Amino acid sequence: MEIPDSSFRRRLLIEALTGLAADAQAQAAWLVRHGVMTDEIALDFDHAFCMAEALVAEGQLSCGVMVDLREIDVILSGMSDGENGDRWARDALSTDEGWAGVRRLARRILVAELGEWQQPLPEITVIR
């Protein structure tokens, strides 16, 4: 298996952060359009987050954003225990404190990396 290059890995992280940073209404519409569950937003981040430290080492990501990336990971992990199923309902995107915190952090990272947080939500292909 070929390891994706750093620009591809950076794009995955930026797209994952874009999904996290979007307004709750835009997130919900994206989920419906692609026919996926709310956890897909977090899963996209989890896949990209695994590569973040390598991106910093390669100079593709500023090291200052790692604190915020880790905090996003902590928040999402904390939301994932068995007693928090309601936090993954689509409605929770607009009402849950965790989602609001993740949104704020993702926006801060995107501003640091791109100069603005509003980006088009990524298109995905779902294989069923």
Rank of each mutant, 00 (worst) to 15 (best):
A29G: 09
W88N: 11
T125I: 08
Q60K: 13
F45P: 10
M66D: 00
D68K: 13
W99P: 06
I127R: 13
E116T: 03
A48Y: 06
G98I: 01
A48D: 02
L17T: 09
A92Q: 03
D81T: 12
M51A: 11
D86L: 12
E116I: 01
L20G: 06
L69I: 06
L76I: 15
A106E: 08
V56F: 07
G101Y: 02
I124G: 10
I72Q: 03
V56I: 14
L17K: 02
L69N: 05
A100C: 02
S94G: 02
D46H: 10
F8D: 11
D46S: 13
R108M: 04
A92P: 06
G59I: 06
E40H: 09
L20V: 00
A24G: 11
F45I: 06
F8T: 15
L110Q: 03
Q119L: 14
I127L: 15
G98Y: 03
D96C: 13
A52W: 01
R107C: 13
I41S: 08
D46F: 08
R9D: 02
V102Q: 06
M79W: 01
S6R: 12
D91H: 11
P120K: 10
I127D: 09
G78Y: 07
E113P: 11
D86N: 13
I75N: 09
S77G: 15
S77D: 15
E83M: 11
A112F: 02
E116W: 09
P4M: 08
F45G: 12
C63H: 03
G85K: 04
A52Y: 02
H47Y: 12
V126G: 05
R70A: 14
G19S: 05
A48P: 09
G35Y: 05
A57M: 10
P122R: 13
R33D: 15
V102M: 07
A100T: 10
P120I: 06
R108D: 12
A100F: 11
M37G: 12
A52V: 04
V102C: 05
I124A: 09
A112E: 11
A54W: 00
M79Y: 10
D86S: 14
W117G: 10
L13I: 02
I72Y: 03
G64E: 10
D46Y: 04
L55F: 07
T18L: 01
A28F: 10
A21V: 01
T95R: 12
I109Y: 06
R128W: 04
D68N: 13
E71D: 13
W30A: 09
A106D: 03
T125G: 13
E40G: 03
I41D: 04
D73Q: 15
G82V: 05
I75W: 04
A54P: 00
R9P: 07
G64L: 07
I3V: 14
V67F: 08
A92W: 00
R87I: 01
L93K: 03
V74W: 08
M79P: 08
L17S: 05
W88Q: 14
D46T: 09
N84T: 01
T38K: 05
T18N: 08
V65D: 05
Q25S: 14
H34K: 06
L76D: 07
D23A: 14
D44T: 08
R104K: 15
A92S: 14
A42K: 02
D86E: 14
A48V: 00
R33E: 14
V111L: 10
D73L: 15
R90F: 00
C50G: 09
